[in-house]
Amino acid sequence: MLSRVYVDEREVEVGIRARRPQLLVRLGERDYAVDDFVIAGAEFSLRVDGQPLSGWWYRRGEELQIRLAGRTYSVQFTSHAKSAAATARAHEVRASMPGVVVAVHRAVGDVVAAGDALLTLESMKLQATLVASHAARVAVLHVAAQSVFERGALLVSLAAAEDA
């Protein structure tokens, strides 16, 4: 999970606030509604808070150069968020609301890839599957099938995939 990026060498905290009905991204102190994102060759277009914008992009390793409205921005992703040695926060899988565990899909020691299912949960009569956000190793399962958990509860601890 990208928790921070750098734009023109200034740090910006990044968070995802919501995915439906629209993707809502938090940058620093503000939330932005984003949709209609399209990449076509070296050009891109998107809508931010309803305003359509388009520009050009070029990737140079970890740096993305974006040219938008007559100005070029250099956006750097944090390397540690992309490597296996992520922060502790990224390795703690916590519940965002109270619920119950329907099924556990992994065992301790399993190596998972980004997108692999970890647990199936049920909250407010809706079921959903929790997936790994990056390649990792399942270090600790703090819950089992039928476990009831509160909001904020630690469900799974992941470790770097190459840890012995």
Partner: peptide, 16 residues
């Protein structure tokens, strides 16, 4: 005015 949009575009283009 567009610094945020540039960051958002950069993020959306990132696979992770």
């Amino acid at each position: 005015p567009h610094a945020a949009a540039a960051v958002l575009a950069a993020l959306l283009g990132d696979d992770d």
